[in-house]
Design a protein around this nucleic acid. Structure first.
Lengths: 264, 264
DNA sequence: GAGTGGTCTAGACCACTAA
DNA sequence: TAGTGGTCTAGACCACTCA
């Protein structure tokens, strides 16, 4: 971890006086101290200094390390908590967020049953292979066309009813040892596997949703007639630094489920 | 506006000393001071003391009025800003949010073109009538079955292409003078009209999204074959106090548009 | 220049957790 | 009892807006 935030407008550490040398003049690239602290903490998360599920240093310790007040560290951590990168627990400390939590399971999967409570679906891996990225996939993953990708196709069922048919493309570089066996063995959400076994943590995603008609293959797997209307959700997931690390295309059967979205 | 926050644990105003009588003991219903301030400000918004687009009192003035420190008022307003109830502008003040803003136009309408920038659609009002609420509508709007509702049906087009077919149900009580003429005359988003003419401001919404096939009526209006897959978005909108004030069912043609959703 | 929100500090006490 | 995050205060200076 870096020793202290760099401040474009003057010497780094104030450490005394009413107001620090945090802002001054009209320097071209200025950011508040707490944003710099936030960036430094994010670096610690990204570099693996603090791993998912672990405790990060206390506010007091970070304040000492960075030579700023506790309030400034607090504001930095507040934002990280708002972005779900860390979780605060009173009396215990601040923990790095992980996908191995009940509350994380439905952060990205927004398909919920029309009645009853959501629960984890059964998972049938249909296909896993390595291939060269098609142009469209390469573009969305910010790879070069022809770079290696891992392709996964799977069918998810709720209470025995096939409901989600999903295709994934992952950068081959980041997921070298990913095999069908590993996927089948692993229980729980796929993002937990990615995090634990491949050190890649998804922190944000962007989805584009359309309605499409089921083609013959999808219709058969989902057990519906050809042309049945399906939700098509195309998701690009990002890790630290807005780096795209997953493309996912899901076909959702919305006969007994719906995509839940709360706008505010 | 109420004079000061009530504090279950002791006298209201500290006004001096290091720590106020904000918390103490183990009283049953306790909430932090800043939450109480937030509730009081929200009351001012709800009661119409400060109307959409208007300036609310400065942090310093509110702090004096409520007998708390500026930092406490700041934290309350921070949360209101995060919930889009108010907007802060450095050097000017804090304003009540309004739907009469460019940035507000696409907060609830998430259908965007596959290429190019979003813009306001053309609007064709098909039908406006008053009716008794069907059971399902009454349930979602938290009305009694048979209560009066305003029913609206309209078609929205982008660049001349019919894309959204929408039905709305509004509580008759709140929208007494709403006629087709008013709707046709009014330019801009419907929520702006509701806010300005009927004093009802939407602040939050919950959507359930499904894929459906176009029925004969929808297919004709949208200019597509029967059975064409469409996105069906059922939205319940809420005003202050989580009171449901609108049910909207939209059918979206997703040939050249998609529903954009960012997960974080 | 006055007033506003934005940042930062320093220090206090509280609620919660775990040893 | 010690350590953590959560709340609250008081006061300072900064950036921005407008008269």
């Amino acid at each position: 971890m870096n020793p202290a935030p760099t401040n474009p407008t003057g010497p780094t550490g104030p450490a005394a006086g009413a107001a620090p040398a945090a802002q001054a003049g009209s320097s071209p690239t200025f950011s508040p101290l707490y944003q710099q602290i936030k960036a430094l903490i994010t670096q610690g998360l990204q570099s693996g200094e603090w791993k998912p599920g672990e405790l990060i240093p206390s506010e007091v310790e970070l304040a000492g390390r960075f030579k700023v007040s506790q309030g400034t560290v607090r504001k930095a951590i507040d934002e990280l908590a708002a972005e779900n990168l860390v979780m605060r627990r009173q009396g215990k400390g601040t923990f790095v967020s992980t996908h191995h939590e009940a509350r994380a399971h439905f952060r990205f999967l927004r398909l919920v049953p029309d009645e009853g409570v959501p629960h984890q679906p059964d998972n049938l891996i249909i296909e896993v292979k390595r291939m060269r990225a098609p142009a469209e996939v390469a573009r969305l993953l910010e790879l070069k066309s022809g770079d290696a990708v891992v392709y996964i196709r799977r069918l998810m069922s709720f209470d025995g009813s096939p409901t989600i048919l999903e295709e994934l493309w992952l950068p081959g570089q980041l997921f070298k040892g990913l095999t069908a066996e590993r996927l089948v063995e692993y229980k729980g959400p796929m993002y937990g596997l990615f995090e634990s076994e491949f050190g890649t943590r998804m922190i944000r995603a962007s989805e584009k949703i359309r309605a499409v008609g089921a083609d013959a293959g999808a219709a058969q797997l989902l057990g519906v007639p050809d042309g049945t209307p399906l939700l098509c959700a195309e998701r690009v997931s990002f890790t630290y630094g807005d780096k795209a690390v997953e493309l996912r295309r899901g076909l959702y059967l919305t006969a007994n489920h719906h995509y839940q979205n709360d706008l505010s």
